[in-house]
Amino acid sequence: MMILAIDTSTRVSSVALVEDGRVVAELNQDTRLTHSERLMPQIKQLLDMAEKTSRDLTAIAVSIGPGSFTGLRIGMATAKTMAYALRIPIVGVPTLDALAWNCPLDGVHLVPMLDAQKGNVYTARYRFENGEMIVEESAVVRPFTEAVEQLRAFGEPCLVVGERQAIRDASILTGNVRQAPPHLFAPRAASVALYAEARLANGQADDVIELEPLYIRRAEAEVLWEKRHGKQA
């Protein structure tokens, strides 16, 4: 099993090649280039490094969101089209789940936070028991400070992972709520691949045509229109 994984849900662009539980190669970039410019060359570079071609791939894994709308679409258009053209299975991995997989340890609660604009974060809470992921709170949008206050009241040790831009005030991440160190903090395609590998082992691939980004939020124009006209279209 040779899985190519892609995560472009934040400003970090990450691609990884995972073969039977082994991370063969991974490339993470947090540079000024746009996802659109760097993603495909990055995939080519990754395969070249591993001395593989696209024909060696047996599955594609992709981070489906939440995250930057445009970033998600670039990652998903690339992943879906590659899976379709190469006729291999695709697995969509929720970005917050993949972030929790950055540190799948018992005894700590994993709290991913992604920028949801205007001081808000997309967040969720997980814990691991004997390597198995348990969703304690599923994805929501809430103000960053409120999210931290809730974790503070919760009292147990929490490790915050995710996106730099989501952390409005790092100085309040103290006590039981700590920010993960940089190498565990950001989205990593290796986490996406390992998560997908577990799902593929259970025969849980997604439909390449049907798989869509998990935006969580609707388009702003749609929300405004409903405010003005009521729900009926």
């Binding site: 659109s36 993603l39 495909m40 995939i43 080519k44 696209s54 445009t70 679409r73 670039i74 258009a77 690339t78 992943a79 879906k80 089209t81 590659m82 053209a85 190469l86």
Partner: peptide
């Protein structure tokens, strides 16, 4: 960008 991403993935894969 949706079309460009899909086209690049197609060209590379094929």
């Amino acid at each position: 960008l949706v079309g460009v991403s899909a086209a690049k993935a197609l060209a590379f894969s094929l």
